[in-house]
Design a binder for these strands. Structure first.
Length: 567
RNA sequence: GCGGGUGUAGCUCAGUGGUAGAGCGUCACGUUGCCAACGUGAAAGUCGCGCGUUCGAAUCGCGUCACCCGCUCCA
């Protein structure tokens, strides 16, 4: 069959549906393109991951660890609107940069509008041995020159491109334009010229690079920056922001955008936070929330979807300390992902090359996970970017509101007071920006552990901290007073741990089947009440990962779980 | 968006023109003595959707939608 072989991610998708982690969105109406809903266990898993981030960033930043300045890390939370003043997205660059078909130069990382590409093509000197032959060819209307690409220019039109070439002949070296024909036999919108190449005459044409060429034969298009063939990506529509309208009248004046990232809500509230919460630089602002991007091609299960949740920190500091904070955050965030269960070789830290950086960034690294669908490559979980003062500067320019900071601990020492005179500056920003849904997906993929030796054939090896089901209590058989004992232990555990996750109990069917069911749901511990429990008050705990069993007194169960769940 | 492929029960799939199927899962009852045991029974699909061909379509044709793989978006 031509059907593609089931991939590792297919198995994860299948289990996710079967056990209620992830459902296709809008399924009963035929689905919504690449959108997914979280089922009971998935919603729990996602909440646990979000809470873990919140706890370790906002409640006890970096586990109480000290920053590079020797003080404990200071973070305050924020929760800003999905729909902001549209000017926010103009200032951030999202409106201007993402509404036209764009092309990237893969090598120089430069981006420009695809419809601004003008190509210059020339015939070979063999075709036109003499100047006169060239004139004759054009006059006779021989449209089908055997031309080859010489250069690509960025200009609004072929005539503007011609002007550029005439002003700067080096652009099309070694060709020289010796005559511009008034009419072109090569079609409308095309300029025909006579050129000279090292003494030989030839014909040249200037015309817009066709979109279809960028898509179908990128090798025949030269980069306007490097001149290399095939260096450009296909044109892409970057109208990535969703929009709507406020009020009943729908026109441009009432148009609003759904945020494509939560970060801008933080930047525009920088002054509010500084003025009202007694924070002092260095400090960070943290926020989780949904963001929306009208992706051209959402794909790979929940990896790239149009609606996704972010967990973002904007950490503000003085420029002189920024690199130290960048390194600190990069390393801490990597350590954090390891701590919640992505501890294996599938997680890597990748520092961006200098030519890969955005123009305003001095350093950026990605924390990447080797998903089944990216293997042997990796997909980004979190980006840690040193963004300089770019964002605050942009918003200052557009809003005319100064987003700077007066630092009383800096500046030259005032000899009279023997205190620093203070320094006013625009803070630099380190941005650790993580994808919550991607984190959940990575955890699902990492946890998925085939094991042919056990009945379920697979188990979900969730770290206890994020596992949706924290524990289960089973009577070995559904009689002889065992269910009553199980109910009692279950009630105790629910009372103590119910706020952190599900505590299951089940008396039906064989014990093996119930263990198997918990394996697939990723429950780390099963406590089983048996005949011996009635005699000496002990239960067995069954460990999910190695199926090991140990016996412990009933009264030790709570402490055991507290330790295992890191509470 | 382009190219290739796939849509049948919760999951995995069989069925190629003639009454809609299996395994697993789910639920109920019985049984049970530590890893999906067993028995009996039940619920569950207008075969992705629409139009066409045909006496008759899950099956053939066209269209459409969704998903998967490749190119691109990088939270």
């Amino acid at each position: 069959m031509a059907k593609p072989p089931p991939s590792a991610v297919d198995n994860v998708v299948s289990l996710a549906k079967r056990r209620g982690f992830v459902y296709p969105c809008g399924e009963i109406y035929g689905g919504t393109r690449s959108a997914w809903d979280y089922g009971p266990l998935g919603a729990m898993l996602k909440k646990n991951l979000r809470d873990a981030w919140w706890d370790d960033i906002v409640m006890l930043p970096c586990w109480g660890r000290k920053g590079p300045d020797g003080d404990k890390v200071s973070i305050v939370p924020l929760d800003t609107c999905i729909i902001q003043n549209p000017k926010v997205w103009v200032a951030s660059g999202h409106v201007g940069g993402f509404n036209d078909p764009m092309v990237d130069d893969k090598e120089t990382k430069q981006r420009f509008r695809a419809d601004h590409l003008q190509g210059f093509y020339a015939g070979t000197k063999e075709d036109f041995a003499a100047m006169d032959a060239a004139d004759e060819a054009v006059e006779r209307g021989l449209a089908k020159f055997n031309v080859r690409p010489v250069a690509t220019l960025i200009a609004n039109s072929p005539s503007e491109a011609l002007e550029l070439m005439q002003r700067d002949p080096k652009l099309i070296k070694p060709f020289k334009i010796v005559r511009v024909y008034q009419t072109s036999s090569a079609g409308p919108g095309t300029i025909s010229v006579k050129v000279e190449e090292r003494g030989h005459a030839s014909i040249g044409i200037i015309k817009a690079v066709e979109m279809s060429m960028l898509v179908n034969e990128p090798e025949s298009v030269l980069s306007p920056f490097s001149g290399k063939a095939g260096a450009l990506t296909a044109p892409r529509q970057f109208n990535l922001m969703f929009y709507s309208y406020t009020g009943a009248v729908h026109d441009e004046a009432t148009k609003v955008y759904l945020r494509p990232e939560t970060a801008q809500g933080i930047f525009i509230n920088f002054k509010n936070v500084v003025d009202t919460s007694r924070v002092r630089i260095p400090f960070g602002i943290a926020q989780t929330g949904k963001a929306f991007r009208n992706e051209v091609t959402p794909r790979n299960f929940t990896f790239r979807s149009r609606e996704f949740e972010q967990m973002e920190i904007e950490f503000f500091c003085h420029e002189s300390d920024a690199m130290a904070w960048y390194t600190f955050w990069r390393d801490f965030r990597m350590e954090w992902w390891k701590s919640i269960g992505l501890a294996g070789d599938n997680l890597i830290l990748r520092e961006h090359d200098t030519d890969e950086l955005a123009h305003y960034s001095k350093a950026t690294s990605d924390i990447e996970y080797r998903f089944p669908f990216t293997a042997p490559g990796y997909g980004e979980l979190e980006g840690v970017a040193y963004r300089g003062a770019f964002d605050l500067t942009q918003h200052t320019e557009h809003s005319k509101v100064k987003l700077d900071y007066f630092d009383t601990e800096r500046g030259p020492i005032n000899p009279k007071t023997n205190l620093p005179a203070g320094e006013r500056y625009t803070p630099h920003v380190i941005e650790p920006s993580a994808g919550l849904d991607r984190g959940v997906l990575a955890i699902l993929c990492e946890a998925y552990t085939p094991d042919t030796t056990r009945a379920s054939g697979v188990f979900m090896k969730f770290h206890p901290r994020v596992a949706p089901i924290k524990a289960a209590v089973f009577p070995l058989v559904n009689k002889d007073g065992l269910p009553e004992l199980a109910d009692r232990l279950h009630a105790d555990l629910v009372k103590r741990f119910g706020r952190y996750g599900l505590i299951e109990t089940d008396a039906k069917q064989s014990i093996g089947k119930r263990y198997a069911r918990m394996d697939e749901a990723g429950c780390p511990f099963c406590f089983t009440i048996d005949g011996q429990t009635r005699e000496d008050g002990t239960v067995t705990v069954r460990h999910r990962d190695d199926q090991r069993q140990e016996r412990m007194p009933l009264e030790d169960v709570v402490v055991f779980l507290e330790r295992a769940l890191q509470l």
